[in-house]
């Protein structure tokens, strides 16, 4: 066969047919995106914009709602509570989450798997169920107060519901998996040989932690921290149930403006504040870590 075809490349004459511009290959067309896009525009983007608009149109055009929001000590205290609780929840989640993720990453698979099971179970359990459980556990006659008294650590029950302590405990419970799972992924991707190399270079365990492991994990920690902080800022259910009416947080305030006070202007204004802070923090996260931190991957 080879002998027959031994010939130079035959050069075809003329320029051949020119089919013009390359045709579009069968690829996912824009049309497929349209149903989802319509749904989100009509039932998400537009209603949210309309709500925000009401903050400057109701009851009359102007920024009176914002002035009222900033001018009142009550509202400022709510803002303060919201940021305080979010910050504490974030710090505690990181302080617990990092060692737990670290441990999970180095434990043998057989031991780590059931711990993951517990993490996933707590994450998938109905939110109200979890919050209810904490209301029961933390109440004056609850298990925790009884145990502490039984152990002789305290004389009288500690107030742990209807205050910010309860909110912080309950929220940390909810946020913890959101720190542990991504951090686990980050630590698993670090080659253990790098830490061995650090030891061979003469680093003590503490130095290796401070100079090698923590810097490698830091971007993941920062991304996780921002996510937890932002989620906490807008949380509604847990603060409403564990914090009681005296310790309101921002999301609750928005709901109250709309549901109890039927004051759409103030509701819109508070929503805008929450929205702006949330989006600003996400923009910061995108700027610092790219899209990788946004739940994907």
């Amino acid at each position: 066969m080879a002998g027959v075809t031994r010939q130079a490349a035959a050069i075809g004459g003329g320029t051949g047919l020119a089919p013009g511009r390359p045709r579009r290959l069968p690829a996912g067309p824009f049309a497929l995106v349209v149903p989802g896009l319509l749904l989100l525009v009509v039932f998400f983007a537009l209603p949210v914009l309309a709500l925000l608009l009401r903050s400057v149109t109701e009851p009359e055009p102007g920024f009176a709602n914002y002035a009222a929001l900033i001018g009142s000590g009550t509202y400022l205290k709510i803002f303060f509570n919201t940021f305080l609780v979010s910050a504490v929840v974030t710090l505690v989640s990181l302080a617990i989450g990092f060692p737990v993720a670290w441990t999970l990453a180095i434990l043998p698979q057989g031991v780590a798997a059931p711990i993951f099971g517990v993490l996933i179970l707590s994450m998938w359990t109905n939110l109200l169920t979890r919050t209810y459980a904490w209301m029961v556990l933390l109440q004056r006659t609850g298990v925790i107060n009884k145990s502490l008294i039984g152990l002789g650590l305290i004389d009288a029950p500690l107030p742990m519901v209807n205050n910010l302590t309860g909110v912080t405990i309950g929220m940390t419970y909810i946020m913890l998996p959101f720190v542990v799972l991504p951090l686990y992924g980050v630590i698993r991707r670090i080659d253990p040989a790098i830490l061995q190399a650090a030891a061979l270079c003469g680093a003590s365990r503490f130095q290796a932690l401070r100079l090698v492991l923590l810097p490698l994990v830091a971007p993941g920690m920062a991304a996780g921290a921002l996510m937890v902080f932002v989620m906490s800022l807008g949380y509604f259910v847990t603060p409403a149930l564990l914090g009681g009416t005296a310790n309101m947080m921002l999301a609750e305030l928005i709901a109250q403006f709309v549901q109890s006070l039927v004051n759409w202007g103030m509701g819109g204004a508070a929503a805008l504040v929450l929205l702006v802070v949330t989006l600003a923090l996400y923009a910061l996260q995108l700027r610092l870590f790219g899209t990788a931190g946004l739940g994907g991957r």
Partner: peptide, 22 residues
């Protein structure tokens, strides 16, 4: 793509109030 993911990152209470109005 980013727009499709925004309802996930936005506080639900804002969406709830906005949809309630609509």
């Amino acid at each position: 793509k980013a727009f499709f993911l925004t309802p996930m990152i936005l506080p639900v209470v804002i969406l709830a109030v906005a949809l309630y109005a609509l």
